[in-house]
Design a protein around this nucleic acid. Structure first.
Length: 420
DNA sequence: TCTGGGGTCCTAGGACCC
DNA sequence: TCTGGGGTCCTAGGACCC
């Protein structure tokens, strides 16, 4: 019984390095939208003490002074590199759960019995590196939660170890004893506080509490974690790509927005983008929510945040319906006199695109949905946006700052790497 | 001056039913 | 004066994840 967790090392930073061999051994950080926070650091940058999620302006000067290299995020590129890595893994193991852009769980039970899992994983690691340039670590253990522990151990041991297998009780016990409880998968800030109060400080402490007690004092979620730490499999590998349950498009603004007329086209852009995603998922939604908020960091300015949800009479994925609903939700939550820093749209309550639910009370003035029409628009906009809705802001997608993006090396003809 | 974006799951409590 | 009990469904919000 074994699960492997494949984890790409400093994924975004490693991607940036693939086509820039000159950046070998150079500290790299990748920033969030608006170049706001540090969201990825190379090993060298971590050693410099750059924390995950730290605001860029706080570390900028010292990082650049030490010859660090900085990038704005280039998700098109990272997404493509991720797909390449996952593809290779799927070639090795029949059952793979792509858990995030840089992590995948592999069900090693689907392999032949006589495989040596450690050697097999080393082999996989070498080929992923050779074929994509991305370094990965692999943790092998009886459950998902323990495979996460294995990855943490690889990071903690801090000698060039890339594959770690936790198979017998002693190895597992040793690893658990070395893991602080807040590093356990599923234990966040709040739970950590409560657990510490109960004198549970390491993963081993947590594993030794009876699951029934944990369920009574905390929750079923944490009970599952405890069982998983004890080697009992509670979380299975989900390799069927189940459809999404909600779609969110939201952004912080590069400059604060304080009037409704500026905000409307921005929210319209979010709505258009969210509708595209929804059609790509082959789903329809019957709830459209819009939210706005000021900056929570700006303590001396008045704060406001609100969300409004519009329920639709019939499910839709027509951009025009969603635009109408978005406007209906935005107007009542907007208040003048506030400097808004972020807004977004959230689509939910999905149903299958093919099923039709008619409403007895459908407003005859509601725009008629027209799937063919939307298909043409999607087709024409596939390569580059050419058709806009009147309420959109066509100049800029959203008022966002981003100045240090690398080329889309692998997905755009005009940005392919050049060899001189 | 400057602080990300996109998800999932669970639970408590309200509305409603008989 | 005294005003039930048991159930379902939905939603908002919290906690967590990368």
């Amino acid at each position: 019984m074994a699960i492997a967790l494949v984890d790409c090392e400093s994924f975004y930073a490693s991607c940036e390095r693939v086509f820039r061999p000159d950046l070998k051994n150079i500290p790299i950080v990748v920033l969030s939208n608006n170049d706001g926070c540090v969201i990825a650091r190379s090993t060298e940058a971590k050693k410099m003490g750059i924390a995950m999620g730290v605001p860029w302006f706080k570390v900028k000067d010292s990082f650049l002074k030490q010859k660090g290299k900085v990038f704005s995020s280039n998700f098109t590129f990272y997404g493509d590199m991720s797909a390449r890595v996952m593809n290779i893994l799927e070639g090795f193991v029949p059952k793979v759960e792509i858990y995030s852009i840089d992590e995948a769980f592999l069900d090693l039970d689907t392999l032949r019995q006589n495989y040596n899992l450690y050697d097999f994983s080393c082999h996989m690691r070498i080929l992923v590196k050779q074929w994509t340039g991305i370094p990965v670590r692999i943790g092998i253990a009886p459950t998902k939660t323990l495979s996460k522990i294995a990855i943490n151990e690889i990071k903690r041991i801090n000698v060039p170890t890339y594959v770690l297998q936790l198979s017998n009780k002693d190895q597992i016990r040793y690893a658990l004893a070395n893991t602080p409880v807040h590093k356990v998968w599923g234990v966040g800030r709040k739970l950590n506080e409560h657990l510490n109060k109960a004198k549970i400080n390491t993963a081993l402490d947590l594993a030794e509490v009876s699951p029934q007690n944990i369920r009574r004092k905390f929750s079923v979620v944490l009970e599952r974690t405890v069982r998983e730490l004890r080697g009992e499999r509670c979380l299975s590998i989900e390799d069927d790509v189940s459809s999404k349950k909600q779609i969110v498009v939201s952004r912080s603004f590069g400059e604060r927005v304080s009037n409704l007329e500026t905000l409307k086209p921005i929210v319209s852009n979010f709505a258009v983008r969210a509708s595209e995603k929804l059609r790509k998922e082959k789903q329809k939604c019957s709830k459209v929510s819009v939210f706005v908020r000021t900056s929570p960091f700006n303590k001396n300015k008045p704060q406001h945040s609100d969300l409004k949800t519009i329920s639709l009479l019939t499910p839709t994925n027509d951009t025009r319906d969603i635009l109408t609903a978005a406007k209906k939700a935005l107007v009542p939550i907007f208040r003048s006199g506030y400097d808004y820093a972020k807004a977004g749209i959230l689509l939910s309550k999905f149903s299958n695109e093919d099923s039709k639910q008619f409403s007895l009370f459908k407003d005859p003035n509601e725009p008629k949905e027209n799937t063919e029409f939307m298909k043409y628009i999607d087709y024409m906009n596939a390569f580059e946006t050419q058709i806009y809705f009147a309420s959109q802001n066509t100049k800029k997608w959203s008022p966002m700052k981003q100045n240090m993006t690398s080329p889309k090396y692998t997905t755009n003809w005009y940005e392919l790497p050049k060899v001189n």
